[in-house]
Amino acid sequence: MEATHMTQGNIGIEINAEEDQYLTFIMAAEEYGVDILRVQEIRGWNNVTPIPNTPTYIKGVINLRGTIVPIIDLRERFGMASVEYGATTVVIVLKVIKDDAERIMGIVVDAVSDVYNIEASEIKPAPDFGGEISIEFVSGLVSVEEKMLIIIDIDRLLNSGDLKIADKVSAKS
């Protein structure tokens, strides 16, 4: 559903060389943005296979056309209260890049919102507000249509904590 909506939205938007497109999603009434080029697909929530002995924010793995893809609950990752998954709950499948390694991961969010064109210069650095969503995962804040968007650095976020790619040296020893 959302996916088709997105594509239609895209067509109407003029593409400017200076601008990047961001897909935004809602979590606890806040709007977050991720680089749209990293978005592989958006799918509804389906049951996952849990992985034993991992933090609760790692919901488990799903079968994405033959590949095993881990699913992360972003609310829980950010230490927010988890909510019952509902009709608008979606999984955004993202491409995460770290040191030439490309991984596919899904994040569970409350709902997808829109696609915006944002000029790089419009993005302002976020103040250090401490707390669970450490500043390191936020690449900046931007105002669009009277709203504040939080732009997330997914490469950082999805390579932190238990999601880190195993260090090759330590893996061997």
């Binding site: 992985i51 034993p52 002995n53 991992t54 793995v61 590949t67 095993i68 893809v69 881990p70 991984r103 596919i104 991961m105 238990d162 999601l163 880190k164 790619i165 195993a166 893996a171």
Partner: peptide, 8 residues
């Protein structure tokens, strides 16, 4: 599992 995640 390691392709997109890590060894468990």
């Amino acid at each position: 599992l390691e392709t997109n995640f890590r060894p468990v």
